[in-house]
Amino acid sequence: MPPAITADRLSKTFKVKVRDPGLKGALRALLKPRYRDVHAVRDVTFAIEPGEIVGFLGPNGAGKTTTLKMLAGLLYPTSGRVAVAGFAPWGGGPAFKRRIALVLGNRQQLVWDLPPEETFQLNRAIYDIAEPDYRERLAELVALLDLGDLLQKPVRQLSLGERMKCELAAALLHRPPILFLDEPTLGLDVTAQEAIRRFLTQYRERYGATVLLTSHYMQDVTALASRVLIINRGRLLYDGALAALVARISRTKRIELVLADGVTREVLAGFGDVKEFRFPNAVLEVPREDAATTSARLLAALPVADLSIEDPPIEDVIRAAFAGGIELDEP
């Protein structure tokens, strides 16, 4: 089976007008505009197999959304090659668009003043879904997303989480095999985030859909994706398993302790870097290779009730990777 998505040396360059501040700058920009090339995406190459869920990570402005929009055929690539479901997305036409869904956390397709079902009906017409299929799929989505009586309420009366669930339903009525999700949990509370994650997992299991998602919330990525693409300043830095990434770039381990009486922060500091101290709980950070010996010393020297060795939170690892500009070799 050929890959569902391939990108080959994909690049997108935007021309951006440069403007000095102030009235003088505005006048100069008007009379003699200067442009600067912004390389939003540079030579990005990857392949995603059918049925994979891949997380797209990177700080704001890294090029995640631009890449996603090129894959969805919204933006015209400056250079390079893209294929999604066997189509060149730009100019893939309706046949291509029927195979994808695009959900953007900060855009909405639901009509504000009307109940979500009205928008669903519109999509039914747009995607030419037969009435029995529509009924069946809607019932399924209502059950999976727990939409209940939301369908008859005007969209403006729905909460953010309810709205996003309905957005997902609207985007998936045509049952696309490929999903592009840009920040699908943006601004949602923890319960709503979990509901959406659960739904995406179920949807993929049922239909073998390929999912590429970006998110700020690391939980989205750790819960859903076994593989991540990390992009920064338009370049792909890492492509592979999340766990392998952590092992490779985090030089430390966390020792989480539950202490008995009489241990102070100062005493602990002798064993490593104290990250948290809220008696009786404490977290110590030590070099990766010293984790075992330090643990043994701790157990011998202090009244320890409980001890566990963990990898640092993925957020911290990724942040360190971006901040330090650590070079990540392709696996």
Partner: peptide, 20 residues
């Protein structure tokens, strides 16, 4: 790229317009 017009089929155009 295979360029094709969506609303080539008048029936689908009418269906979508009616829904809109």
């Amino acid at each position: 790229s295979k360029r094709s017009l969506t609303i080539r089929n008048p029936q689908s155009a009418i269906r979508i317009l009616a829904a809109l």
